[in-house]
Each structure stands twice: as C-alpha cells, then as structure tokens.
C-alpha cells in the first residue's frame, strides 16, 4: 500500500512534467496548425542551460530562470526565422523541417556541453522529504514539481479564459482569418504563443534536471510521450492535454513499478526485468490505442 501511494505521487509528478510540454505543443497546434517536433529540443535546451547555470552559480532559482528564458528565446527565434514559413504548408513539410531542427539541436548541445550526461543537484531548500501520508516519506523536490505544475495549469486556465490575450488565442484557434480581419496583429500573437510554449518546455527541462540525467536526446524520448498525451487528450485542447498527461503519467509510472514484478511470476527473473522494462515503455502507447478505438478524436476533441 505504501509503495502504491508513493508510485501514485511519482505518476502525478511525471504527469505534471508531461503537461508542461503537452500544453505548449497542443497550443501551438491548435492555434497555428503547426506540428513541432522540435518542442522536445526546447525542453533539452532548458535542461542543459539550467544544469550549467546551477553548476556555475549554485543558485537553483537562477538556473530555472535561465533555462526558461533561454528556451523561450530560442523558441521565439525559431518561430520568427523558420517555423513561421511552415504554418500554411502541409503537416508532412512541418514534420520534416522540424525533424531537421532536432538533428541540429541534438548536435549543437553535444558540441556545447559534451555527450557526457550531466546531473544537477537538488537545491538545499527543497531537499529531504516530508511524511504527509503516514508511513510514506516523500521527497519535497518532487512535491514542489507537482505544485509548480498545478500552479501553471491554474495560470494557463486564467490566462486563456479570463484575459484579452487568451480571448485572442481562443479566437485565433477557431477563426484565424477573422481575427486577422479585425486588425489583430496575428504574427505577434503567434510569436508570443510560441514563446509561452517554449517557456513551459524550458521550465519542465530545468525542473527535471535534478531527477534525470541531462543528456543529448532527452528531448526525443519525452517528445514521443508528449505526442501520446495530446493524441489521447485530443489535439488542440489544453484540458485534454491535462487529462492525457495525468493518464499517461500514471499508467507509465505504475507499469514501470509493477510490470517487471508481475512478469516474474510467469517467466525467468533475468528475462522478466528486460521484458518488463520494454513492456512498460509500451504501456502508454497501448493506452493510446485503446482510447483511439473508443474515441478516434481523443478524450476532449479540440476545435482545430
């Protein structure tokens, strides 16, 4: 039981990380109609910049700030120079051009920071653990990630539903040409939305630094999970991204925790470990297949 409670919290924490990425990806898709494979690269950039800043300055908050700022800057630069030209091209061109960007970013990070994985330290004020469920001490740092994710979700909700910018974003998603006809400078809006998505990806990258090793290619793996999230949730829907992220976070974490042990009941221990790991990597994709059989457009079909 205590293990289960801990795993559920881990699932929540992973789900929150996925949500930070999925929110940006799904916003960009819903509003600009762009499918951006390089979103995972922004996450990687955020993680590298944060890890290096923390190693240099010793300040975790400064590291997170730097990671977010650089990711947002790189994202907006990418939007203005390249991605903007892709909005009206078909999805195939978008996939291939952003695939090229992934190759570029992976190699650029390898040249700048080396291929050795970097580990960031958990900051002092977030180290240690608390026991708020009896018998389950849980790391404060992971709780902090969950809290940040919840806060981001709340802020995004407020931003999109209750502000003028949010109204434009919603209008841009459904009636792009009409918004432009009303005199809104939609180009600026697009760059801002893209910057916001990049900022969140950078935040996710900066926060996972102390939990995972920061290395080249880390963005690719999570990108595919993020795709699974937004397909489950429904393309273009932030609510769907939240629901999908939580589902995938839970399923993936629980599968990783329990599948190898379950497999050991039916096969040799040495095989079960490897096979269990592979099977748990596939669990979220199987979930996606099931969701698609029942609801081909995802749980919360967007309007895009």
């Amino acid at each position: 039981m205590t293990l289960l409670a801990e795993q559920l919290l881990n699932g929540l924490q992973y789900g929150v990380t996925l949500f930070l990425l999925a929110a940006g990806l799904t916003l960009v898709f819903g509003i600009m109609g762009l499918i951006n494979l390089a979103h995972g690269s922004l996450y990687m950039v955020g993680a590298f910049v944060a890890a290096r800043t923390q190693a240099g300055s010793g300040s975790f908050l400064m590291a997170v700030g730097a990671g977010m700022a650089v990711a947002a800057f790189v994202g907006m630069l990418m939007e203005v120079t390249i991605l903007r030209r892709l909005y009206f091209r078909d999805h195939l061109d978008q996939v291939l051009a952003t695939f090229g960007l992934i190759l570029f970013f992976n190699e650029a990070m390898a040249m700048l920071f080396g291929r050795q994985p970097m580990m960031a330290a958990i900051p002092d004020f977030l180290s240690g653990s608390v026991t708020f469920i009896p018998g389950v001490p849980y790391p404060i740092y992971r709780l902090a990630i969950i809290a940040v994710g919840a806060a981001v979700a709340a802020i995004l909700y407020g931003l999109i539903v209750h502000t003028r910018i949010g109204m434009l974003v919603r209008a841009g998603a459904t009636h792009r040409d009409m918004v432009r006809a009303l005199g809104v400078r939609i180009g600026v809006l697009y760059t801002l939305v893209f910057g916001l998505g990049a900022l969140l990806a950078g935040l996710a990258g900066a926060m996972v630094g102390p939990l995972l090793s920061v290395q080249v290619g880390m963005g690719d793996r999570i990108l595919i999970s993020t795709f699974v999230v937004i397909v489950i949730g429904g393309l273009g829907s932030i609510r769907g991204a939240l629901a999908g992220a939580m589902l995938v976070g839970m399923v993936d974490t629980l599968a990783r925790a329990y599948l190898p042990a379950l497999l050991k009941l039916v096969m040799a221990a040495s095989d079960a470990d490897g096979f269990g790991a592979g099977l748990s990597s596939m669990a979220s994709m199987m979930l996606m297949a099931v969701v698609l059989i029942i609801r081909p457009r995802g749980l919360f079909p967007g309007h895009g």
Partner: peptide
Amino acid sequence: LSLRTSGVSFIMITLAFAQMLFYLFVSIK
C-alpha cells in the same frame, strides 16, 4: 488501428506504434 485517425494524429500514432516495436526489441534480451 491508425487509420481510424487522419492528419496529424495519424503521423503521431504511426510514430508511437513504431516506437512500441522499438521498445519491444530493445527489451528482448
């Protein structure tokens, strides 16, 4: 399964299924 969707979802789903095969072969020692 994949052809139940179209457009971008189709791109992502075919990617995810291929990745499943990838993990399958990674895991078979």
